[in-house]
Structure formats: C-alpha cells, structure tokens
C-alpha cells in the first residue's frame, strides 16, 4: 500500500476506509477466546524492555535541557524556586508523553511495519492464513495490545528519569538538596495532571501499534514495499500522535483538568 500522503483525495478516503475495516478486524479478534499469551508477553518484552534505554536517555536529557534553558529566565524574575514545579508539570502533562510517543513511533511502529511487511513479502502471513490459523490474532492483536500497555509505562519511566535530569541540570549552577527538589516537584503535581496524560498515552500506544500493523500487514509484495511500510508507519503514527494530542488538550481543558 503506497504512502497516503502522496494520494489524491479519493485514495485518502479509500485508505481511511481500509483502516476502519482493519480496526474492525482487530476488535473482532481482540475478544476471541484463544488469546496468544506467549506472543503477547514476547511483544511486551520486545516493545517495552528493548525501548527502555532509548526512552530513559531521552527522558533524562529532556529534563536536563529544560532546566538549563529555563533557569536564566526564571533567575531574572527571581523565580528559581519554581523550577522543580515548572519542570514537573511540563514533563508530566505534555513533553514526555508526546516526545516519548514520537520516539516510539520511530522505533516501534516502523519496526512492526517492517516486520509484518517482510512477512507479507515472503508469504508468511498467507501461510498462516492458509493453514487455518488466525494471523490477525497472532500478529496484530498481540502487538497493538503490547503497545497500549508499554507506551504509558515507558512514559512514566521517562517522567521519573526526566526529574533526575532536571535535578542534575539544576546542580550544575547551584547546590540543591535532592529532598527539597523532589519534594517541590512532587508537591506541585496533582492527580489531575497525571491522569489525562496517562490516558493520552494509551491512545498514543494504540496509534503506534495500529498504524505499524496496518501498514505492514497491507504492504505490497515487492521488497521495496517493506521500506515503504516502515516509512509510512512512522509518518502516519507521528501524525496520529499530534492529532490525538491536540484533541486531548482540548478535551482536558473542557473538563477542567
């Protein structure tokens, strides 16, 4: 399936229709009794554990850089003591969920797209189907569910490591007690900050898994299409993440969070 961004209007609607049909297949197979636990746990390991170093380093650097960048301005206004609060809220509510989701789109969605795309090219998916097995249940449901669970967990880890990065950044110019820093940071965070961000990342996880699976599963037969599937999975998943974020912000504002 070619990249949707190069399609004329008719093809965009066709692509949207195909995505809806594929989503229907996912939900239909989600509730079938013979759940693939073994493959699901393997995917959680591949998607979650294998992404941990990248996510932790990114989270640390985000916290570190935000603190270094904002410190001179805060100092000019005599508001240095607000740095832990500012960093905590911005990391939890917006920066970590979106940045980690975009990183996961690059790493996970493209990986799924390429893996399923190459399975399609080498007729492995057809072989599963012809044998009477259910490739959607085995390949698609497990991967999307693993993303739904692992992306929020990775974001929480990035939040925590981001606090540590912020503390390290602040300690470059002045000596701050870790107890004081983390007390200030955690006291400023409310349940209302954490909950919408957490729910948002569940949808990000779904978008990352779904787009990766859709692009890979429906790729064409040539080897070139594996690259196209991986590339368009990243582009489309990133776009979905930005759109979901925009909707989530409007929704949380309307609900008063």
């Amino acid at each position: 399936m070619a990249d949707a961004s190069t399609f004329p209007l008719k093809s965009i609607f066709e692509e949207a229709g195909n995505q809806v049909i594929f989503m229907g297949r996912f939900f239909r197979n989600l509730f079938r009794w013979n759940f693939e636990w073994e493959e699901f746990i393997r995917q959680c390991y591949m998607i979650g554990y294998r992404s941990l170093p990248l996510v932790a380093i990114t989270g640390f650097i985000i916290g570190f850089v935000i603190t270094l960048q904002s410190e001179p301005t805060m100092k000019a206004f005599g508001a240095e003591s607000f740095i832990p609060k500012m960093v905590a809220i911005s990391l939890i509510r917006e920066i970590c969920p979106v940045v980690i989701a975009l990183i996961c789109a690059g790493k996970i969605s493209s990986g799924i797209g390429a893996e399923l795309g190459s399975m399609q090219v080498s007729e492995q998916i057809d072989a599963m189907e012809v044998s009477g097995s259910n490739p959607v249940q085995y390949l698609v449901v497990t991967r999307i569910l693993a993303c739904i669970i692992m992306v929020p967990l990775l974001t929480l880890i990035a939040d925590a490591v981001g606090f540590a990065g912020s503390y390290a950044g602040l300690n470059l110019s002045q000596r701050v007690s870790p107890i004081l820093f983390f007390n200030k940071a955690f006291n400023s965070v409310e349940f209302g900050d954490l909950l919408p961000a957490f729910f948002k990342t569940i949808f990000f996880g779904f978008a990352i898994g779904f787009i990766g699976c859709y692009k890979g599963y429906n790729s064409n037969r040539g080897t070139e299409s594996v690259g196209i599937a991986a590339n368009s999975a990243v582009v489309n998943a990133s776009l979905w993440i930005i759109v979901i974020d925009g909707i989530a912000v409007q929704l949380t504002n309307a609900l008063g969070y």
Partner: peptide, 19 residues
C-alpha cells in the same frame, strides 16, 4: 473457510517458513 483450509495444505514457492 477456516475449516476448509484445515483440510488443504499449501506449499508456497518460497516455503514461507516463519523466520
């Protein structure tokens, strides 16, 4: 279809082993 396929074997040109 699933039932039918369980009675029909298909050997692909590439063998299509799950790699």
């Amino acid at each position: 279809m699933k039932e039918l396929r369980s009675h029909v074997g298909f050997l692909f040109q590439s063998a299509a082993l799950y790699d």
